[in-house]
Amino acid sequence: MKNILLITLLILTQFLAKAQDNPQPKIGWFITPEVGAMFLDGHVGKTVGASFGVQLFKNHLKVGILSYGRSGPINGATFTTPAFNDMVYKGKNQLTLRADHGAFGLLLAPSFNIKNVSFDIPIMFGTVGGGFYLFGEDRETPDGRRVSEWENELMDGRDAGFGSTLEFGLRGFFPTKIAGMRWGMGLHYTTTQGWETFYDPRGEFYNNKLRASVFVHFGSN
């Protein structure tokens, strides 16, 4: 993942260096930091992320990377499950867990304008990683081993997993007084494939869910 990010950044750098030398560049750029909400079963998860890349065809197509995550420390929701094989951890055989998640993939977003508001249809396909983990004092293990070793044993090696994700939606970009800077909101439909864990063996935790995003968009316009 890190290599892909670095390579993407370097390719973008090359594109933009060429665009800078051209008085009428055909290739634009964008960076869109965002915060969001995932409407999951029984609770709303908070997310932080960003997308960045290039704008092609007179800004009618964005191509780039989208990366966002629903981190455990900013999401207080907890989930309870019996431990694997009736194991006991710190006197309990019921585990109380938090969930964390990260999604990363290629973003394609056809764009269009209605008056001075621009819209795009972001389509992201990539990989999703996520799991369930011990939190708070439970992270201090009774024998000094790493907490992930305990999590592996307590959840049969399936405390976390990886899968693929496909997400699509609609975003609106509203102008500000500063050319090249817009703010906006989006609604996305998220699916995951092949992601399953001990807590959620059916892999439905993040599958077929809605996600809302609020963002500031910077671009060459």
């Binding site: 997310t47 932080v48 992320g49 966002y68 995550g69 629903r70 981190s71 455990g72 420390p73 900013i74 964390d100 990260g102 990683g129 799991g131 983990y133 790493r146 907490v147 992930s148 999590e151 405390d159 976390a160």
Partner: peptide
């Protein structure tokens, strides 16, 4: 700055 984090099989910073 803020952001999600991952590493060390889930044993290091998560955010």
């Amino acid at each position: 700055l803020i952001g999600p984090a991952v590493g060390a099989s889930g044993d290091s910073q998560k955010f």
